[in-house]
Design a protein around this nucleic acid. Sequence first.
DNA 1: CGCATCATTGAAGCCCTTCAAGACTTGTGG
DNA 2: CCACAAGTCTTGAAGGGCTTCAATGATGCG
Lengths: 256, 256
Amino acid sequence: MGNVAGAADAGALSLLRRKLASLGFHGEYELRCLQDGVAPRRSVLPGKDIVGAGDGPAHVTVLLTGVACLYQTLESGERQIYAFYYAGDFCDLHAYVAPERDLAVGALTDCTLGCIPYKDLDQAIKRHPELAIAWWRVAMLEARGIRERLLNVSRRSALERVAHLLCEQLHRRKAIGIDSQVIPLTQIELADAVGLSAVHVNRIVQELRNLGALSRKCRAIEVANPQLLQELAGFDAKYLTAPEMLAQWEVKTSSE
Amino acid sequence: MGNVAGAADAGALSLLRRKLASLGFHGEYELRCLQDGVAPRRSVLPGKDIVGAGDGPAHVTVLLTGVACLYQTLESGERQIYAFYYAGDFCDLHAYVAPERDLAVGALTDCTLGCIPYKDLDQAIKRHPELAIAWWRVAMLEARGIRERLLNVSRRSALERVAHLLCEQLHRRKAIGIDSQVIPLTQIELADAVGLSAVHVNRIVQELRNLGALSRKCRAIEVANPQLLQELAGFDAKYLTAPEMLAQWEVKTSSE
DNA sequence: CGCATCATTGAAGCCCTTCAAGACTTGTGG
DNA sequence: CCACAAGTCTTGAAGGGCTTCAATGATGCG
């Protein structure tokens, strides 16, 4: 709720600019029309929803700090996690073009959010149609991430699944400048993302600790040997879903 | 290879027009610039690739008739099917904005294809930026479909998975006017989509036949009792991923 | 007719789930 | 500062769903 002004907003804007640049959108001046939109801030505590199921917010939410996830709770009470969001990611861009029932975004750690009202987005797109291509690209990347999650659940053993998910998180965190070896997910959250029972994830985590891939120092998930973890996961960095590696992209319509 | 002219092209154009209208794009005249692009036709036999892994085609492919699938083959030789395509679906729109390694589109039945060269697409988008929002929407729907596939694999029993997949196919076929109760998928293809072994899918199919949900008349998958199948699957029509139900959408930028 | 692909069946066994209970951690209020 | 509650982590035992292997029967195609 607490609105912060000044320097913090500059940080948010530069985050947004980097993000859009990585998506192939290079309008320097044009970003200004979104700048004001990001100002309204919000904080959300772990376990609380950033976007509730069935919400029809009139703005797009940008994650500024923290970790969040896209998820759905089933009738049975189970929860399926579809994607993880980090600083710079858009949480509910999908709702702008295609409202989704039953889909929610939850905070996994303390989260800070920026909001871009739909009307600002409308105007920005109208003035700079290349933006729509950038959003299109965001959607494709989201699909790619979910495909990776499906592959994980469908074709890999429990140990590979967990190890692979941890490798992904490690890479995405590094890509935005977080070097900590600690991954702030509970075993329950891990289980909800890899489609295993929490009990079995626990056994896998212990196995990973025995193998030396994870640290035994603390209760949290701390990676002790990233190299080993990658080998156990069969993780291939080329499968990275993060848009950071795509900085060379150009928006087509502006070139021809 | 055989190019067909005249009446058949009119069918393809009307297919494309319906598709775009369902995505919220209503430019009557504007579609003409895509019309010429669809003319070049191609036929692909079952089991062959429409778009190979690593291909960088200079055009977007529209499926005009038949059934195709988006898939990936792993190092182990296994195949994961991510999505099914029917008449009117775009097979490789993703490659236009975000080239994908290892991803291929294969024909499951005899397929007829139309091609839209990238340069036509470039021009169309430049002239009518709302088109980019329509493509964006396509990408979101693709993501939604893959999420549904993930949910299927992650949280449901083998019988529910198979039944649910069959329900989806039935609905999508009906949405484009195919009323046949026969679903032209082999048990192996089913297995590759639901993440089960072919052997076990076979046992499930037999169980569904014993329960009366599937027909025993032929070797192919023929639905005998759609209602029962839906109950067994816990299938809820509201989860439909097909864009046909979204005809009420409007492209935002043109309204304000 | 022979070959390739798909469907079917059986047996053995492992991976993972479920249930149940206890230990540890954290935060909250008295 | 302690007690308590809530949530997470941990451990064991029992069982079932699915896989793998292997072999045989059907179907269709050149």
